[in-house]
Amino acid sequence: MNIDWSCRVVEATELAATRGAGTRGERFRPYQRILRAQVRAQLSYRTSFWIDAVSGMTFTAMDLVTVLVLFNVTSVLGGFAFRDAFFMSAIASLSFSLADVIVGSIEQLRLIIRSGQLDSLLVRPLSLLPQLVSIDMQTRRVGRVLEGVAVLGVAAGLVHLRWSAQTVAMIILTPIAGAALFAAIFVMTATVAFWWIDSGEFGSGFTYGGRDFTNYPMTVYGQFFRRVFAIGLGFAFIAYYPALTMLGRADPLGLPDWAGWLSIPIAALACGAAGFVWRTGVRHYRSTGS
């Protein structure tokens, strides 16, 4: 009975979403409205909003400060000097901030499923994922992205990049591909909630864990751990390999020097996988009935 009902709702939603497609502008308008309402709602608690915005920016800075502090007690980390390691951290930090602003709030999914709110989103004639993302988009975190861009600029200056068309293309595309990979990880780990409502902090191990992992050169990690996170989940291609390619350095771990360009196909692959996992999850969804 229950399953029947939720299936019909999903079909109806998809139908409505495709039918209501119309022009591009019309299609995005509802999400823009939701977003604007979000910003207004968040701004209405002014003190809290500003404390949160400032803390958020400081948080982002802290990953980089941590790298600085570590280099206060050592001159080399995993075979890399400060400048090179900082360059990698800056790429990682910007990629993560971008992903976090856009899809970070998806980690609330398990709470939304538990409280039964998901049902009310499913019956609306809009797609589910964009709705989920826009109902709690962390607009106050936009400052972090700007900060990330500035820091990457400084880091690129420190390492004296040899500017060529390739480098320019890469420094622009890398954070975008990195953000796409992080976003895919955010969506995939959140999807776990469709099967496992009490998954708690499980997802953070891969999302925030991934951020911390990419913050350092891959050479510092033990072999097994590196294989799982760096290659298996693709985190090495967010900052480490693109940085090596841009710096013109050989990989101590043995991949060729064009490995940095792999970030784009890997991100695309991850997004495809995330889309597949997400659709499977939504089809699997049964209301908690509350």
């Binding site: 608690y45 809290s48 909003f49 949160d52 803390s55 948080f59 802290m62």
Partner: peptide, 13 residues
């Protein structure tokens, strides 16, 4: 403040 998110974020930082 009613909305506690700001102080929470500052604290965890």
């Amino acid at each position: 403040l009613l909305d506690g998110r700001g102080p929470q974020a500052a604290w965890s930082l």
